[in-house]
Design a binder for these strands. Sequence first.
DNA 1: GAAATATCTTGACAGTGTCCAGTACCTGTG
DNA 2: CACAGGTACTGGACACTGTCAAGATATTTC
Lengths: 203, 203
Amino acid sequence: MTNPTGAYHHGNLPEALLVAVDEIVIAQGLENVSLRAAARRAGVSHSAPAHHFGDKDGLLAAYAEQGFTMLADSLETAAIEAAGQSMIDILKASGAAYVRFAVEHQGHFQAMFRSGLDKSTYPELAAQSRRAFRGLKQRVEMLLQGGDDAADADVVAAYFWSIVHGLSSLWVDGALEYMFTEERPERIVDGVLSLPFHGGAFS
Amino acid sequence: MTNPTGAYHHGNLPEALLVAVDEIVIAQGLENVSLRAAARRAGVSHSAPAHHFGDKDGLLAAYAEQGFTMLADSLETAAIEAAGQSMIDILKASGAAYVRFAVEHQGHFQAMFRSGLDKSTYPELAAQSRRAFRGLKQRVEMLLQGGDDAADADVVAAYFWSIVHGLSSLWVDGALEYMFTEERPERIVDGVLSLPFHGGAFS
DNA sequence: GAAATATCTTGACAGTGTCCAGTACCTGTG
DNA sequence: CACAGGTACTGGACACTGTCAAGATATTTC
């Protein structure tokens, strides 16, 4: 049967399904994502998605991978735009970009960190996730090279990553607004991102 | 029908169901928790759980609430045991207790932060979650009172909370082991928890 | 144009959450 | 002790889900 508006072949079903997943996560939460609902939104039969993504986890993994790619790109862009400033300011800009990504792409962020996917099952997902982190770690290493402190780069990278990831998670989770009811989350985030290397051995 | 080992009435079905949920989360992941599987483990019919917890979210909320209660207790105990030491050491002990809770009770931790439950729907869940955070914030305020720095308590509390929460999330998620393959997570965690107030305005 | 392949449909099955009517047990009151 | 009322649980039903197998249709390749 030839669809008048399109064709028997959708044309770009994988991309359409990823868009459908994003809409569902935003509107109804990660728990309500289903292969069949995504298929309905894309206007195809209930089992069409399986031919592109294998199973439900495969679809979610592709969606999460897209998120890691976007995050890695955002972090890179932020670092490039802050080039020329101090290493601390570059790191702060990266951190702000991380939190901004989480808030502006909550659907992807949830799939990336709340879906319970096993990265070892999805090599491409693992690769993009590593890429996002690699940039942060390199910048931390550059910061430490300039200082006289023999701090452990792995530890400082994990420290900085924990801050921006924790902050993002708590914000997306609603915890920031919940615990600081009279505060705007933006002010909290700005303040926190100024603290990590504040007045200490890294300043 | 009278059950020889027990009774028609289970005796303590709510508690048995919470134990069942914990076992399922640990063994099969949060995604595979189901009312029916929990009921089977507790040896009751598929719709018995609804009479105690309403629906699936109600069961998960009760399990998560149990987790927040345990976390709040753990943080309190850690602070009491560290009493007499410097405020920074007390905070560090609290942070270590937070991470330890996440790792030792991964099931609860996942339900607390990965289940997507709306706290405004479950007042008791919200209350225990606030209680866990309140202790941390009080200790941060005590730390700042002693210093000459007019730092914003809300910001520093969010800062410290982000670190321990981000660290816990990344560890439970497997990200620490994934990014620092040659490192023991424990060493990373110890190192990170030494940094927050290291050599800076709060030392 | 025919064969091979990629894309999608249709139908089926077991498992799930939730509702509803019924059954077994306990508890308080006379 | 009887018995009424409430609590705790059962069993059946329904719509929805993920997944599988088989078939239909479009595209590509030769």
